[in-house]
Amino acid sequence: MAEQAIDLSKMTISDEVAVQISNMNKWYGQFHVLRDVNMTVHKGERIVICGPSGSGKSTLIRCINRLEEHQSGQIVVDGTELTNDLKNIDKVRSEVGMVFQHFNLFPHLTILENCTLAPIWVRKIPKREAEETAMHFLSKVKIPDQAHKYPGQLSGGQQQRVAIARSLCMRPRIMLFDEPTSALDPEMIKEVLDTMISLAEEGMTMLCVTHEMGFAQAVANRVIFMDKGQIVEQNSPREFFNNPQSERTKLFLSQILGH
């Protein structure tokens, strides 16, 4: 990743708050998954969240679009607080894009239909216009020629790029990535990371759960390390990787970078 020149000109962080999480707690039954999480994400930030498995990092970003429900504390996304109010939840979800580890494309729809479905039904955009937008984003992720195929006919890397395009078609203000490259063959990881980098270059607010440390060093403005449901350390990537403070972080970094 290091050899790649990244255009930093549009990667500006504004004062505007995109996501505000305060004193948030979540339990699965008796199990305390997220403990007193406090986090403020500003517009334009690129945050990488890492940590050992079971540390609650996926759960944290899934709380931001209410795929998981938190039990106490507050989550405010783009000025809308997440409560049981379904209207608010749908509003937040249409503003926040999400990319999953297993792509979760709709296998019964073509690539183009995957990308136009939500704009047509949620945003009520005319079909023609939605298709134009979809083709625009499919070109952006470099697979416009696959538009009329079905997800099952594409490689993993292509499917994940379609999933990114599908989220972008909703014109989200914030993008969440839940281990987007973990289910991919090594040869396909780069094409997905390149797509994510170009998204970052356009100034998108991004929260990525990932173990791609090269990506974190190249793109992120902040790295958050989580363990046992809490934020253990956060810092700029340079400081985080070269000068970790907590013992837990040092151990983690030695495990993943050690070989």
Partner: peptide, 9 residues
Amino acid sequence: EAADALGLD
């Protein structure tokens, strides 16, 4: 989850 995340009711 994908349907939810896209904002479909």
